[in-house]
Design a protein around this nucleic acid. Sequence first.
DNA 1: GAAACCCCTG
DNA 2: CAGGGGTTTC
Length: 729
Amino acid sequence: MPDHDSTALLSRQTKRRRVDIGVKRTVGTASAFFAKARATFFSAMNPQGSEQDVEYSVVQHADGEKSNVLRKLLKRANSYEDAMMPFPGATIISQLLKNNMNKNGGTEPSFQASGLSSTGSEVHQEDVCSNSSRDSPQECLSPFGRPTMSQFDVDRLCDEHLRAKRARVENIIRGMSHSPSVALRGNENEREIAPQSVSPRESYRENKQQSFQQLVSARKEQKREERRQLKQQLEDMQKQLRQLQEKFYQIYDSTDSENDEDGNLSEDSMRSETMDARAGDSVSRSDNEMCELDPGQFIDRARALIREQEIAENKPKREGPKEKEQGPNAFHPEGKHLAETLKQELNTAMSQVVDTVVKVFSSKPSRQLPQVFPPLQIPQARFAVNGENHNFHTANQRLQCFGDVIIPNPLDTFGSVPMPGATDQTEALPLVVRKNSSDQSAWAPPAGGHHASLHQSPLSATAGFSTSSFRHPFPLPPMAYPFQSPLGAPSASFPGKERASPESLDLTRETTSLRTKMSSHHMNHHPCSPGHPPSPADGCFSAQALKKEIKQLLSQEEHFPLLIQSYMQEGLSPNHLKKAKLMFFYTRYPSSNMLKTYFSDVKFNRCITSQLIKWFSNFREFYYIQMEKYARQAINDGVTSTEELSITRDCELYRALNMHYNKANDFEVPERFLEVAQITLREFFNAIIAGKDVDPSWKKAIYKVICKLDSEVPEIFKSPNCLQELLHE
DNA sequence: GAAACCCCTG
DNA sequence: CAGGGGTTTC
């Protein structure tokens, strides 16, 4: 027997790994992480609702400003905390007292408007006062501008002030630990403590104010704590972003070492090519601003690139022809284009990460920010393109060039990013996680629209469009994330999904491979903007240009073996499974070398090999089970001669097999398979008739026969796109 | 002893 | 279809 199988050890090793790699766990952890961060974030930011409105209006409407979102958020977290705590020793109580005194002075129009901005020095004063008011009461009062009081007045006021303060402190404590109603009763008690300090009417007003202040204060304290947590989490995110940056530049350099010394240079050169003066200015300024903050700088860079891409998109007339001419031109050497494409793709993906992080914070509108914080529309804007959209092309290039391959995003190397649960993903993920047809419910975005399919195209998954990536803003690493293209049952499985994105029908027939439709579907249907119907332009791109670029890319393979290899799929997709099943019609016992030949788009490792072998092992298992079953059935039916056993395309056995390996029945089963099946059936029949089935290993003899009946698998199966070609025939 | 294979289970 | 335990083969 040839070495068909290597499952035992390999699978033992790899399967354990698969279990550890579980997507769900990663999703869940990341989800929890960011949900927490988001909650904390909003809690901390809510007090500044008005300012935030402005901020996120900018985020939504001015793409140019989006680049700074995260940095601003980080900055705000800091500045807000700074404003609240100008001095480490400033106690919350002293702030509360200060607020009360401001109230009494009638100088505080609103908490948000002036409470923070005007408190710096006053808080200090209050702090000093609370610590040393007996020694220098005037200092406490000086902010109120009454330096000419007599000593008696000063003493009296100070005394009153201290008593009132004590009462307020007690109230504050009560207020912090009781409901508002309870706090109100506490205020009433306070009147007994210091009834003589103010008139009943004033006292009532003051108490009212105080109760409000207590609520505000308690909330402030709570928010401060949350803010602290947020800050910590943001720091963690910064750290992760820094690592992303490193990886980014690492890849960046490797893809563009031709004319660039480092990532900055290459980026600058890119920018100079496509940016106009205005945008260039802002980006440069942005970059300068970000020099102090690495992750922020990184974010800005990624976003600036996106912006320049968008700017480029707005000039299709100028940019399109230019792109097309540059390929053949000497101005752009062979491969430069690919490098550019890859760079843009990298940048796009990076900014998706950033967008996703921001979106995590923005996805859950808070009470205070009901409408001013809509979901970002970045991805859609980015992919709502015309035929010249380079970015879209690059996205599709990957999908097209490698057919059903899951192209690991260059961000793969972010596997080292210490995301919780995101272990070193170098092996395949769960082989075929879901079935195409039976799992449709998983595809359809739930009513909410926010828990869209977990099955994303590699593009959308890594680009941060999807809920899945939404849950792990840092793209699920290398993740040979199964590309759920329903090629297996195109006609059957599509309608339901297409309903959600009918615009994908706009795709030109030329490129309407089902896979392309799927990719388009995914891109159009990212849940980032559930309430925003995708633009009809989303699915419209130039098939010609696409094909051209695909050819160009393919022709450059030999120049970029490493790049191409890095774009090879690290996992097996449902389409690979379907392909394997079709191949089973030709070969029941493929060697591992053969598998490597016919699955050349897969980056083979032990796991992949064993996985494929296991697939065929499972195919054989089903095959032989059917044979045995049918043979026994024939015997029971009174068949006595193998001559009576024949397999036609009408017989039950064939239908069962066809249903299993060719479910959609869109592949014409080769005649040879019928012959082999018939031989197998007769082998089983004869063995059973001869009573060999009493031997526990009686099937082995049959296996030995059948394994010699393998025939050549057609060359077309060596093509990564063989499914499209086969099914179009 | 490792690899290949078989068988069973979920 | 994946996983794992048991058995056989080399």
